[in-house]
Simulated scan of single mutants.
Amino acid sequence: MRVLVTGAAGFIGSHLSERLLARGDEVLGYDNLNAYYDPALKEARLARLMPQDGFSFVRASLEDRAALEAAFDDFKPQRVVNLAAQAGVRYSLENPHAYIDSNIVGFLNILEACRHRGIEHLVYASSSSVYGANRKLPFAVEDSVDHPVSLYAASKKANELMAHTYSHLFGLPTTGLRFFTVYGPWGRPDMALFLFTKKILAGEPIDVFNHGHHTRDFTYVDDIVEGVIRTLDRVPGPDPAYDPLAPTPASSLAPYRVYNIGNHQPVQLLRYIEVLENCLGRKAEKRLLPMQPGDVPDTEADVEALRRDTGYSPATPIETGVRRFVEWYRAFYDV
């Protein structure tokens, strides 16, 4: 297939592009390589993709409608995976406009480009953040997600609503994927595992919010990519079991689906740090702090819908995933 992957120089996007190329797909990567975190890491990810047969690249933003439409017209993708977004919960408190520009305006441009070009299937990244103030665990795609606690979460919920509208009005098949705390080699420097590793190796204290008591459904990047590919290959149709008198947010009479992709094995942050200490062979000096605004105490994915429809659910334990990250980090930064 010809697959357009936005955010291809990003953490998940670069891993996904590699997998698609390995199975023989043609991939057009689309990314603006912005400076939200070190662009050198994005360039290094991209450098691994550029020499590969079947890969081409456009450097531009989702907000740049002309550039996006030109990429669609030149490459003529059959399917699209939209992973480009302004990421990060805490940054959304500082720079809200970046989230509207990329995640709302940019996503509208994606939907319009797909609509007018007869794209077979649009898969897009949502987030576990949409569950917001929900406290019923595990989080299920059938649950209401009407109480976001950050603008980032609100923008991802908006993506799901926008996608449903296009599925309903124009018959565009769309699948939204709620990722749960993704980690692994080539990960993002603004996320806990990367920050902790860097500081522990430098002998600096690490900030541990909520005194380390909150739990996260840490999901290894290869498991996320497998989930993306399984759903990309399965174009949704109208849900024959959908009942308008008892509606579910997870499906529709339109060709629309939403899935969780998470390890469904929540781990307390203090345990995560302990595994990292074991892999590094060093102890962390912890600064125990209260929970930050926009954070939630616990996350846990109910992946029954994903398992039912694709036969897949993530399973990599943190002991394996964290070790692989540390091996990559030490080799990449030579520490």
Rank of each mutant, 00 (worst) to 15 (best):
M1W: 08
L4M: 15
T6S: 09
G7N: 07
L16N: 10
R23F: 02
V27Y: 06
N32Q: 14
A35F: 02
K42V: 03
L49D: 02
P51V: 14
F55K: 10
S56A: 14
S56F: 05
F57R: 03
A66F: 05
L68Y: 04
F72E: 03
D74Q: 14
V80H: 08
V81C: 08
N82F: 01
L83Y: 04
A85L: 02
A85K: 00
G88Y: 00
G88F: 01
G88R: 00
V89Q: 12
R90S: 14
S92Y: 00
N95A: 15
A98L: 11
Y99E: 01
S102D: 06
F107C: 03
L108Q: 13
N109Y: 08
N109C: 02
I110M: 12
G118R: 10
H121V: 08
H121F: 11
Y124Q: 01
A125E: 02
S128Q: 10
S128A: 15
V149E: 01
L151G: 04
Y152D: 00
S155K: 00
K157P: 00
A158W: 00
A158G: 04
A163M: 07
T165C: 08
S167G: 12
P173W: 11
T175D: 10
G184D: 06
P185S: 01
P189K: 11
L195G: 06
I200N: 10
I200F: 06
E204L: 12
P205T: 06
V208P: 14
F209W: 04
F209Y: 09
G212P: 03
H214M: 10
Y220I: 01
V221F: 02
V225G: 07
E226Y: 09
T231W: 10
R234W: 01
R234N: 10
V235E: 04
P236S: 09
G237Q: 13
P238S: 07
A241G: 05
P244I: 10
P249F: 02
P255C: 08
Y256P: 00
V258N: 05
N260F: 03
I261V: 15
L269C: 04
L276W: 05
C279N: 08
C279F: 01
G281D: 13
K283R: 14
A284F: 05
A284I: 07
E285R: 15
L289V: 07
D295E: 15
P297V: 13
T299Q: 09
E300D: 12
E300Y: 11
D302E: 12
L306D: 10
G311V: 13
A315G: 10
P317A: 11
Y329D: 13
A331E: 15
F332N: 04
D334A: 15
V335W: 13
V335F: 13
